[in-house]
Design a protein around this nucleic acid. Structure first.
Lengths: 191, 191, 191, 191
DNA sequence: GATGAATGAGGCTTCATTCAT
DNA sequence: CATGAATGAAGCCTCATTCAT
């Protein structure tokens, strides 16, 4: 087995266990067991549990970003691009509930805070594109003239809440509901 | 020192520490130290760490609920009542950032899930009032015809995100911005 | 309430709780609660938990001794006196299962060892009389010529085991069975 | 050092400490210290203190059973088989006083109760053989017609008491005394 | 005398990390 | 490189005893 496979196995095991149990209830030994490697082996790939958690997050985010951006309609109007982003984000996280559970935990922990801070101040990630949309939208007087943090909250906040409910089975997000919801998000930010 | 004071000291210490560090990074011994009591003393007031966490949450929620409902304009039109609730919620949590941090952690943990589930399915708590608003709004064809979980997400999601940014200093929520934001939330749910 | 009543209440509560739960599972606070006194009050009557345990034992033993000796047929032949002792001991402990449970625990703990040692080497307690019986019996060539520790074991050992089974409901000790058992004990020691 | 050695070291340390001090006065840390391992190491071999205590008991019992049954005269008459069992039990426990002290504690605790109950109602263990002897003896009208719990008490009770005295140095059980004692036990149960 | 709230040492157990094999 | 047994610090909780009221 190649080195890279072992690394991937560890990350996959960590993803599944942490998504289900949380960071604190998931011992390194359990991750190792599920990944089919020795406990010490993890430390050849990740300096510590913290590093593993962070790298796993970055990996997930990158994968999500790439998937969503694949069909991104760069040339289409603002509204369409916005709806596309929100919709695909929802779909991606519905399809990959483990990713959602994991990222949710990540954000609600000291780990997530610095990541989030960097983002709003402008760095990599798929939200960059959203930031662009916001900037353009404000400029074109299509969107409300609000700080990006506010627009971002109006766009993303409902998403996260809704996904949580969906995973808990409190609501079923099928296509028509997704459409309505994303449009409601647009209503919130549009002028 | 009276019994009630000691109990209050413990809750205050727990609030501050957990808000800053999270449940898992906050040992009982540290809470005891900050509260100025012996480690065993906590257990005279709270059966276990879990119970302390839950009671603290209930206390915070009750206080928030009472504060917000104090001036609730029962007789005013739907829109006004909705804006009032969202606005006061925002204000309360801005004024009491520790409460916000604590409740955030609570919701993002096994503790919060059942509480949330109960709420959406209709039980006590200040969101009941919001649920009433949603029901009436749909009936009166003022609001979009969406499941309550969706309306709830559209109303609350942005709030939480925004508060997080506010506390991180990424945005400053002064009155005019609060007004604009709450109205944007209304735009999201209104038909 | 008189001082002596409080002391008795504490001992009664200790008896009931320890008989049911054991020394280690019975906190002083629980004893105090059941006795209807403050936790600190116990220490006015007993220096420590250890002292309470020892004094309680002595009290129980004294009471048992007195009860059994009440009708002791001093003038009757050896065999009869022996059967009387064993029978009454059985009856007493069947009637007072809490006493039995307590004493059993006491013997099976560091407490009981010194007490037992003193007894065989000749001191107070109802076994003194048994020791007399043994001495006389050997002298009169009615009993086997065995060390007193052996005779004592042959006489008492079955008793304790049987009582345990009785309390567990594994056997029911009614009068005819008691008679047969005590006679079997006699068979064991008689020449 | 092999795994099996460490496990054995832990059991030996637990045996010695618990035999001397009892379950409750023997912290896991002390066992670990005496075994020459870290505190956490015990938990690689035993799920909990309870499990350690139970497994240790089972190990001791199995060893005792095997030792005693090695030369068991299956073909000899009832009386001889009975005397053999009692005698060898005595000898084994005299030779292994720690085993005796440990098992004594075990039986006088919640652990031992269920074990004992199962035995009288007929399950595995070396006493099965004794139960067989009792059944045959009653059938053949060699033994008194008493419940097995009574016969068992008459046979074992003296044994335990005597061993306790022996270990305390209150009597010295040499071969001739053992012979006399076992025969006295026979006298107790024989018709 | 009596109380019971308060204490803090000590017990069991978990788990991130190390290191000999 | 990989392993997984071993470690021990650290966490939660209990309870005998004290002492201010």
């Amino acid at each position: 087995m190649k080195t890279s496979e072992k690394r991937a196995d560890i990350m996959q095991a960590a993803l599944e266990l942490i998504a289900a149990q949380g960071f604190h209830r998931t011992p390194m030994a359990e991750i190792a067991g599920k990944a089919g490697v020795g406990a010490g082996t993890i430390y050849r790939y990740f300096e510590s549990k913290d590093v593993l958690i962070k790298e796993l997050y970055r990996g997930l985010e990158e994968k999500m970003r790439a998937t969503i951006l694949e069909g991104y309609p760069v040339e289409r109007p603002l509204r369409e691009r916005f709806l596309y982003l929100i919709r695909e984000l929802l779909r991606y996280l519905i399809t990959n509930p483990l990713h959602f559970r994991y990222m949710e935990q990540y954000f609600n922990s000291p780990y997530g805070i610095s990541t989030h801070r960097e983002r709003l101040l402008g760095k990599s990630g798929n939200q960059d594109i959203l930031m662009d949309i916001f900037e353009q939208g404000i400029e074109q007087r299509v969107l409300k003239e609000l700080p990006k943090a506010v627009l971002s909250s109006l766009a993303f906040g409902p998403l996260i809440f809704l996904l949580r409910d969906h995973i808990l089975g409190l609501v079923i997000l099928e296509d028509s509901l997704i459409k309505q919801t994303t449009e409601a998000c647009w209503d919130a930010i549009k002028r």
